[in-house]
């Protein structure tokens, strides 16, 4: 039991890491969103403490705050406080969201990968790499932004690599674009994030990030190996 407590304590301390953790970002998008989270968390803790503190004071110290007129209570707490918190937050989030969009770049075109979900697997096609395909393994080059065009063959799925970026739904009949960038080579984990039936829990995929100079070769090798495996 004691060991269990120690382990759980360690787990909570290690806390933010994990293969699917949004708080251990490995790419620009996830990084930006994690920052937003930490800012909001700090604000939320302060506001929570404030409201609960006020509740404690008015209940356990009768008369506390009765010199503040009722109208002022409501205006300060109900209008001013949310106003000064929400307006900057909305502005910040809109700007942050804008930076994550797959905007057309002016220089070199952003490479694309087509991701297709189906019950219950993912197929990735690489138009810029001769249209080769891989299943359940997405190959990316480190440090390069990539646009993932996500769609579905059957029901709605969602493409999500928590350590790299937010998610986007794979909707049949539509194509949604998500910009992803991995900073460092390595292995990342992705999963389906929209309930899609019996195999939803196991509809995972792996993201292999290569050094840019190795990317083409590694992808070709993987695609060929898969093709051979099928035969």
């Amino acid at each position: 039991m004691r060991a269990a407590i120690q382990t759980s304590g360690a787990a909570l301390l290690a806390g933010c890491s994990g293969p699917f953790s949004t708080l251990a970002p490995g790419g620009a998008a996830a990084d930006s969103i994690a920052s937003l989270w930490w800012i909001m968390l700090a604000g939320a803790v302060v506001l929570f403490a404030l409201v609960m503190g006020l509740f404690g004071l008015v209940v356990w110290r009768p008369g506390w705050g009765s010199r503040v007129s009722p109208a002022r209570w409501i205006v300060l707490g109900g209008l001013v406080l949310p106003g000064i918190v929400l307006l900057p937050l909305i502005a910040y989030a809109l700007v942050a969201g804008e930076r994550l969009l797959p905007l057309p770049s002016f220089g070199s075109a952003v490479p694309r990968v087509e991701a297709e979900g189906r019950q219950w697997s993912w197929t990735f096609r690489y138009p810029g790499q001769g249209g080769v395909t891989t299943s359940n393994v997405l190959h990316l080059a480190a440090g390069t932004p990539v646009d993932i065009d996500v769609t579905s063959k059957d029901v709605i799925h969602a493409f999500w690599v928590p350590t790299l970026a937010g998610k986007i739904d794979a909707v049949p009949g539509r194509t949604n674009r998500l910009r992803v960038q991995a900073d460092r080579p390595g292995q990342y984990e992705g999963q389906c994030n929209e309930f899609c039936g019996l195999g939803h829990a196991t509809m995972r995929f792996v993201v292999l990030v290569h050094r840019p100079e190795d990317y083409a070769a590694a992808l070709a090798r993987a695609a060929a190996a898969e093709g051979a495996g099928k035969k």
């Binding site: 909305i90 502005a91 809109l94 804008e98 969009l101 797959p102 905007l103 674009r177």
Partner: peptide, 10 residues
């Protein structure tokens, strides 16, 4: 108000 400043169709 604020949303009208954003990129139109992305």
């Amino acid at each position: 108000g604020p949303p009208l400043w954003l990129t139109a169709c992305l």
